[in-house]
Amino acid sequence: MPETNALLRILDANLDRAREGLRIIEEWCRFGLNDEDYTAQLKHLRQTIARWHTPDIRAARDTPGDLGTGLTHTQESVRHSLGDVLQVNLARTQEALRVLEEYGKLYSQEMAAACKQMRYQLYTLDSQLMGDFLTAMDVGTRRMEQLARSRTYLVTSPVPDLLGVVESALKGGIAIVQYREKSADDHTRLKTAQQIRALCHQYGALFIVNDRVDIAAAAEADGVHLGQQDLPMAAARKILGSRKIVGRSTTNPQELQRALDEGADYIGVGPVHETPTKPGKSAAGNDYVRYAAAHATMPWFTIGGLNADNLGPTLAAGATRVAVVRALMEASDPSAIARSLVEQTQQ
């Protein structure tokens, strides 16, 4: 029956996907980390999945007739770091196991239950492996690996309970926080920057300071974010050193190219929509997002009037990372909004 054949093809594709993803991770644990425990765990998971890959499932395979073999995305052709390779394949395997769990219920309850348990095991292994991977690196490399893995970015604005909002967003999974303050005195800025940095590091997030390289240095931030009219990147690196992150705002292809030429570690792409955060700045729209998806070779974050409800078209245009301001700073439940952003950018 057509439905049965389609089910078997779905199982076949995702059994292959899970096995391939696990093998990529296993190879690094074996040859890169020389870690016997991780290698054994991953090999066991891979062999367990292989036992479910039976001849009747394989027989349903129709590679020439599979529409998915001709589909690709620009992000699939680029890996920014070794950590990115590991994280992408951990996520890929988890997704495949989820598919096997759901469709497996129509094929074998035992298979569905086994895939569910393996998915939970992989969640734990994900946290342990990536934590150990980052710990093994020097601080500068660790920052860059963490940047490459990050998908969500909060830019602060002045609110009565700034630290409370930031902590709530961090609890929801925000990966980077940028402290942006245009009017406070420098003593207040430094103190607040130090407090936010402590929160970020408590929750395993990166901390960036907007514009002010001196405040970033004094607060021991992970880096600085520069606008088009701020210091040249070479000057910022001279002050901060080579192990800090330096990002740059861009609003058009010419600015993107300059950021590439000066070696920005990441860029902002936007504003996608007009926003009061940048008064008088016209929207760059999703056309610029599509351009960035095709040309940016460093991590890039879409920004500008984005929130959990309107992010879909921007993701469809090729974005995989998002930076927000009001969507979190003015939210009644920043944790819930942060979780939604994390979920959408990981799909």
Rank of each mutant, 00 (worst) to 15 (best):
residue 69 T to K: 14
residue 306 L to N: 02
residue 248 R to L: 15
residue 130 M to P: 06
residue 192 T to S: 08
residue 133 F to K: 07
residue 257 Q to S: 12
residue 309 D to A: 13
residue 255 E to F: 03
residue 220 E to P: 09
residue 72 T to D: 13
residue 139 V to I: 13
residue 33 L to D: 03
residue 13 A to L: 05
residue 86 L to D: 10
residue 35 D to V: 01
residue 282 S to Y: 01
residue 54 T to R: 07
residue 113 A to K: 12
residue 228 Q to N: 09
residue 311 L to C: 04
residue 306 L to G: 03
residue 175 A to M: 10
residue 346 Q to V: 02
residue 185 D to C: 12
residue 208 I to P: 12
residue 237 R to W: 04
residue 154 L to W: 06
residue 68 G to N: 07
residue 115 C to G: 06
residue 121 Q to G: 07
residue 52 W to G: 07
residue 27 E to N: 12
residue 243 R to F: 06
residue 271 P to H: 06
residue 190 L to K: 03
residue 285 G to H: 05
residue 193 A to W: 05
residue 162 L to G: 04
residue 192 T to A: 09
residue 76 E to I: 00
residue 68 G to T: 09
residue 44 H to V: 09
residue 133 F to Q: 05
residue 135 T to S: 13
residue 119 R to S: 10
residue 126 D to P: 08
residue 334 P to T: 05
residue 287 D to N: 11
residue 82 L to Q: 13
residue 5 N to H: 13
residue 6 A to W: 09
residue 171 K to I: 04
residue 140 G to V: 01
residue 89 N to M: 07
residue 231 L to W: 15
residue 61 R to T: 05
residue 124 T to C: 11
residue 146 Q to H: 12
residue 214 D to I: 11
residue 316 A to C: 00
residue 3 E to N: 13
residue 262 E to V: 10
residue 10 I to R: 06
residue 42 L to P: 00
residue 115 C to D: 11
residue 27 E to R: 11
residue 331 A to S: 15
residue 345 T to H: 00
residue 195 Q to S: 14
residue 146 Q to D: 02
residue 208 I to N: 11
residue 71 L to Q: 14
residue 182 K to P: 06
